[in-house]
Write a protein that binds this DNA or RNA. Structure first.
Lengths: 209, 209
DNA sequence: CTGCCGTTTTGCAACAGATGCAACTTTGCA
DNA sequence: TGCAAAGTTGCATCTGTTGCAAAACGGCAG
């Protein structure tokens, strides 16, 4: 495939730096003053760009919150694709762990507490949920790829249940204050339950062709 | 408990009728012109109220889309609470079926196609997801109620997986064009998988005390 | 170095959703 | 009938978001 080391090309560099600057400034302001107390104008000022330019980098104010997560998820979905003849069940487990790590890692970036505050906003929680279901589609495609014979319903149900497990972990952690310890516990338990459920999908037990 | 037949009291009637009028008008306009092509002013005009009044009935334009669903879900969550010494596993199954029926019933209200169009808007899909996770909290509370000894993690994980199944069904149906036949198939399969997964939670097998 | 071209940035204007406030109506009740 | 609470409305305002066209910038051929 195309596996260029991807030279950032002089121009791209600046774009990336600007994007980073916006995200960083925004996250900082959100943490300091709160989400709705921070306007686009504020972010633009802090990132030293014109307000109008913000929308050239992010489609909405909400999306800037998930800039990091989106990048990480993109990586994960890339990594997931390169799987040898692995057992589908194992793929699902890896997916869950990887995706959740990607989401959780972001939390560490600016301190769990601040990001948690942001996620209390209903609109942002909804947006976060959206990320998970997007991940579901990736997992589903992956599944369909590894098990060519899998039925439409099974693929959807399996990935859906997997996502449900993740979602439960996030919900749990929101209540527990994002304690890393309890997050791991919840994650393990969810994976366990999901696996028990999926053994009934016989297609998942066969190794990929 | 308080089990008054709840006489609508003269004043309440009008409020309900107005709410209904707004919802009906909005849904009709959304179906005709599309969601963002319809302004609050349009809805207000169609419902014969002042634009400002709209926000006295719904907190946002998005919420009016789910007016019906919200009502139904409220009923469901009410009905769920009144359970005798039922096996928790059975409770979960009922929850899934009831909640999904509530959501799906709404689709029939104004024709699946139109509502489907609305749900293509990312923001609205996110909002719909939010409904499901709200339902999750209800299920979780119910679970905790029926199995006093259940661990925090198990309750969260179980309800999360259940919701994941529902979410999968919805996702599947969105792609299949909301065909009632395939929806039932997906629902059955999801319930099956969820049940298989939850047998590993021993607390769920015991009947409630 | 210089001028040209495509890309990016910016300012401006406009629209729509949402909220606070105060005035005005309606409704329920004594 | 008249008062007080509840509901409705208009107005002003703020903020997010988008389209448009001008200006600034970056890279490249001559």
């Amino acid at each position: 495939m195309d596996d260029e080391p991807a030279r950032p090309s002089l121009r791209e560099r600046k774009k990336l730096r600007t994007r980073q600057a916006i995200a960083t400034a925004a996250l900082r302001l959100f943490a300091e003053r709160g989400y709705e107390e921070t306007t686009i104008a504020d972010i633009a000022a802090a990132a030293d760009i014109a307000p109008r330019t913000f929308f050239g980098y992010f489609p909405s104010k909400e999306d800037v919150v998930f800039a990091e997560v989106d990048d990480r998820l993109a990586e994960v979905s890339e990594r997931l694709r390169r799987t040898p003849g692995e057992a589908p069940m194992e793929t699902i487990r890896r997916s869950i762990v990887d995706v959740l790590n990607a989401v959780v890692a972001e939390h560490a970036d600016y301190g769990a507490v601040q990001v948690a505050l942001v996620l209390e906003r209903p609109a942002l929680r909804a947006r976060a949920l959206q990320r998970l279901t997007d991940a579901q589609e990736v997992i589903e495609a992956l599944l369909r790829d590894l098990c060519p014979g899998i039925s439409e319903v099974d693929a959807v149900a399996a990935s859906g249940v997997a996502i449900g497990g993740m979602q439960a972990v996030v919900a749990h952690c929101r209540r527990e204050g994002y304690d890393p310890r309890s997050m791991r516990t919840a994650l393990d338990r969810a994976v366990e339950i999901v696996e028990h459920g999926l053994v009934s999908v016989e297609a998942l037990s066969r190794p990929s062709p």
